[in-house]
Design a protein around this nucleic acid. Structure first.
Lengths: 346, 346
DNA sequence: TTGTATGCGTTATCAC
DNA sequence: GTGATAACGCATACAA
């Protein structure tokens, strides 16, 4: 057994085993042997490659070609199904085109972000995909400064930057709120409250504005006292919802900025002995697992679609670098469940 | 502006800019200039590197050194918070040691797995981390065949293989069930049912066996009629739970193989007008988000810990290749909530 | 039809 | 202290 060398077999080893030159091996293994290498030699090379256990070295190839076919993916919070789905959607498209993902998930660590991006650039990724809101009030996420300066294609998903130097992909919050409002209106609701998200950023703004626009467009009065400032953890949200629903002329319907908050709201409703959807109809946002389990109507942002859309944009930019940067809005859809149309629940 | 060349500046460019040789640049930039390079030269090199925007090329280094400092991570289902947490835990440890993650998530696509692993090997990853159960009745996951054959270090998280040729990390299901059973027993329960998982594999088996052992050890009768065969989707689980709870001498407590199933069970309980925890106490498994929202007592598998443990094992094996393969069990903990100790809920 | 030579960007071993 | 030079594995222009 030639178990002495821990080195992996290279194309030179294959060449030796097949008694040909290394160039011939390269031709054969890359399918460029048409009318160049004799069938007999071709077979001999293929057999030799199999015999020595040859495995092409992507590193060497990348070094030579100047591109790695690798996309650096930076996820702000991998633990959410939503972000994970975006990544999966992007992966599906990118792998189809021969790219693989160099992924890093950073949760809260602010300083480490730029350093991780820098690391990816050292690895010579062909482009960078940023997944998840970073909610900085700038023209681009701070951690992308170096990347943008070095003209590396960048796409940001789930956070839109004004006058951007990067491409952005966000789901259409305006459409989402319109779907929610119109759905409720079609069931006769007019006093529709909105429970905003407990975080700041372009997405939060887009949803509040979407709510206001949709209400106005539907000819309904915006209820300013009802979109209270966002609270923190679960119990506080429940309390906020309680307050909202104890008001003299309380809303007959409630739209929450995410399903998670709505989960706590359901608890609050029980305490007040209000039934859903008869007393208060509920629409969530995000169509998370909890919406399925608790039978909540919710706006599905179709994160996989967002990921795919971002990937396609990335591919386009890789082919043709000098395009104007744009913000792409992807469609959402309303998933109707018992919290708006079901039999009443105690 | 020298904007003509799209080529990135190399250490040679730095050398030219600093009027030194390329080797000197290498010494300075790798901190090996102690007593070798004059301070004055050192400064000049550093300044030149900054000026030309030098960025070391990991590919070239990897090609030369024969190691990429990259770990291939293969996740069977990234969409779950549980798997994501395992990845995050592993990432934390690995990045601390200078490794980065080449990640691929495959959901159901069976055939593509081996091909993705092969791709990682072409990229010359230093090791492979498999996250998520693959539930094949073998000595190792099929997609690792090539990797094992080529002696690449492999660690599998969340699925244990008997007489394994790889290292495995699983959370201690035996301990988890024991914690659950003893917790319930301490509240006077003796008729404790177990609702098994709707999937097969080593984990499912370990939990059922853990239940039986824990019950026996606690001096309680195992209730064979209560661990019915697993059902499929949500409604079926709810029906199964309904059946279980309609029995003449129904259990006073129920342990579910995961929180998700318990979510549906709660629905079933409401239909029967049974209260929690007075009529039936509930313990879930996994401590998912839904357990938090629905106030369910649950066994936390501490997935981050699992990830860290796997990463440490990987690092150990990278330092010293010839160790016997082992299966590591990581500790779990019980998170107590209202479904076992709270005021009764209607 | 096949073989030779070169360079991608590093690091490391030598002479100078 | 410093500067050539080799090697890592591959693709390709060019010579034979």
């Amino acid at each position: 057994m030639p178990e002495t060398s821990p080195r992996k077999p290279s194309s030179i080893d294959v060449a030796r085993a097949a008694s040909v030159s290394q160039a011939t091996v390269s031709y054969v293994l890359n399918g460029k042997s048409a009318g160049l290498v004799s069938d007999e030699t071709r077979e001999r090379v293929l057999a030799a490659a199999r015999k020595v256990g040859y495995r092409p070295n992507s590193l060497a190839k990348a070094l030579l070609k100047g591109r790695t076919n690798t996309i650096g993916v930076f996820v702000s919070f991998l633990g959410s199904r939503y972000h994970a789905d975006i990544v999966l959607g992007a992966q599906e498209v990118l792998e189809e085109h021969g790219y693989s993902l160099l992924l890093t998930a950073s949760e809260t660590d602010h300083k480490a972000r730029a350093s991780r991006i820098s690391f990816m650039m050292n690895h010579r990724v062909d482009a960078i995909l940023l997944v998840g809101g970073f909610y900085e009030d700038m023209t681009q996420p701070l951690c992308l400064n170096e990347a943008v300066a070095e003209r590396l294609p960048c796409v940001v998903v789930d956070d839109a930057y004004a006058h951007s130097t990067v491409d952005c992909v966000v789901s259409d919050d305006s459409q989402g709120l319109a779907l929610a409002v119109n759905h409720l209106k079609s069931f006769g609701h007019s006093r529709i409250a909105y429970l905003p998200a407990p975080w700041k950023g372009t997405t939060a703004d887009a949803r509040i504005n979407g709510y206001i626009r949709a209400m106005t467009a539907a000819g309904l009065d915006v209820m300013p006292e009802l979109y209270a400032p966002p609270a923190g953890a679960g119990d506080e949200i429940a309390n906020l919802a309680l307050e909202l629903l104890r008001q003299p002329n309380r809303p007959t319907a409630l739209i929450a900025a995410n399903d998670h908050m709505l989960g706590y709201t359901v608890r609050a409703l029980r305490e007040l002995n209000l039934s859903t959807p008869d007393d208060v109809a509920l629409v969530g946002y995000g169509n998370q697992e909890i919406a399925m389990v608790m039978e909540l109507t919710s706006v599905d942002q179709q994160p996989r679609l967002m990921g795919k859309s971002a990937a396609l944009r990335l591919l386009a930019r890789l082919e043709q670098g000098d395009m104007p940067h744009q913000t792409i809005q992807t469609p959402v859809k309303l998933v109707v469940r018992a919290s708006t149309v079901g039999e009443a629940q105690p």
